[in-house]
Design a binder for these strands. Sequence first.
RNA 1: ACCCUUGUAGCUCAGAGGAUAGAGCAGCAGUUUCCUAAACUGUUGGUCGGCAGUUCGAGUCUGCCCAAGGGUACCA
Length: 551
Amino acid sequence: MRAYFLPYIEAALQKAGIETGTEIQIEKPTDKKFGDFSTNIAFLLAKEARKNPRELAGQLIGLFAFPEGTVTKTEVAGPGFINFHLDPGFVMRSAGAVLEEGEAFGCNEAGKGQKAIVEYVSANPTGPLTVGRGRGGVLGDCIANLFETQGYAVTREYYFNDAGRQMQILAESVRYRYLEQCGQVIEFPTTHYQGDYIGEIAETLFIEHGDGLASLDDLALFKETAEGIIFSSIRRTLERLSITHDKFFNEHTLYQSREGKPSGNQQVIDALDAKEFIGRYDNATWFMTTKLGQEKDKVLIKSSGDPSYRLPDIAYHVTKFERGFDLMVNVFGADHIDEYPDVQEALKILGYDTSKIRVAINQFVTTTVGGQTVKMSTRKGNADLLDDLIDDVGADATRLFFIMRSKDSHLNFDVELAKKQSKDNPVFYLQYAHARICSLVRMAAKEVGFDEATATGEGLPLLSSEPEIELASSLLDFPDVIASCLRFLEPQKMVEYLHTVAERYHKFYQECPILKADENVRDARLALSLCVRQVLRNGFRILGISAPESM
RNA sequence: ACCCUUGUAGCUCAGAGGAUAGAGCAGCAGUUUCCUAAACUGUUGGUCGGCAGUUCGAGUCUGCCCAAGGGUACCA
């Protein structure tokens, strides 16, 4: 819709002799009486045109030259809005085209030839995924799906570290539990991982080795076993939510020198050093962020000689640039919010174009059960597990609930609502609309020999009642909604949109008889239903939820 | 102490500086000889956390204050 009309608005501005870099905003008015779409350009351009908005708008409306049969009325309203009213026939014709476009409806090639990387989940293998992690995982997956609709070649990446101090603690934790299995009485340190899964890993080792490892000082076996078991559990959990990755990037590779070249970490140090942003004192190596106005420098290499997480993080992002990505999206939780600016500053100093990086930060999740709020905590062992949530409410509800609120708001996951089988539950409401259409199409095939394979949208202009036009009109918004989701890295808008489509379909279904209508009208209504089904499917695919054919 | 996010109807939340602030749920009143009532229709409900400012115009931008969550490691 926006893409269709934008050129005509630009042409009108040109005719008026207005040259401007101002972005033209086309919006859908909340009130129907203000037309099908409107623009506020007269406000935005009033100052530079040295006219008042109403006057400028009045001048502009004479200059629009839309194609025959599209816009029926253009008017100036309020303090200077320009409102456009669409020809219902145009709306119906356009909606009918959804059938021909099928899965491609909503897609375009804006990102063709461009490489994008979306990094998400990136949890270290120190324990099973928690509910909080799930939100970022689903968000990242949806964002990757969104970019794919624009023709980007998307790489989905998981960045992890299996070296480092946390893994050491993990190995020790397993060893303590293992010694308990062997019958030793030990005091389990409060600093270590408390979760039940540690005991289970220890049990696996005990079953396999008996007490043969009790005097083993080397932690390698404990670490490897734990990592193997935990990683496969993480992957299994992600798989249940249809979250996939093309690549698991091991942080450790940044520590290794290759082909005679220094390691990625070392290259970052050298490059920052050359720009005089490296300081060496207190036995450590520092990124001199005080030079950028920050209060303290940041440690890159600890006095122990090991890099802090910040250094490989920078080196990791360097690899993204070296791998030639045109767009890099990082998805992470609010607990990492302070880490990112340092990485960005370092990359800027190293001469990389950080405008290619976009960051999506999601706030935390609390779950409520029976009105009681349960806070999700990490690392304590009492953290709620994502797997348990999926067991409880299913994969579709888990996914949808994670993204049906904006990522910036703290999510209140109502477990009971997610299980409800009624319109209160958005998952059900959306899927029911889809199932209802499938059922209708099955019935039509049986009763009146309707063949969906040969159906076309050509008859849609026969339909002219309000529920039909409203429904068709909402279908045309789909590409704009995708654009909006991408602009804000916010799939929540898609959920809201699909809810509107479903709602209008239910209303249409209620008010317009389909199988009992005259043949031409019947087929047109069936075709419209197929268009709705297609939009729902395309939307569901972006959100990663299933499209059940019956319920 | 500082930094980030949030604060909008009883509840959960939308609101890209613009029109009379919107949905959904709950509440209240209705709809089934008819394709899925797992649905639909109508309706009640607001000091947009508070105060000041910028603007022709502020829920939206700025400052201060209040409240909730998160972060401020030679942990990741």
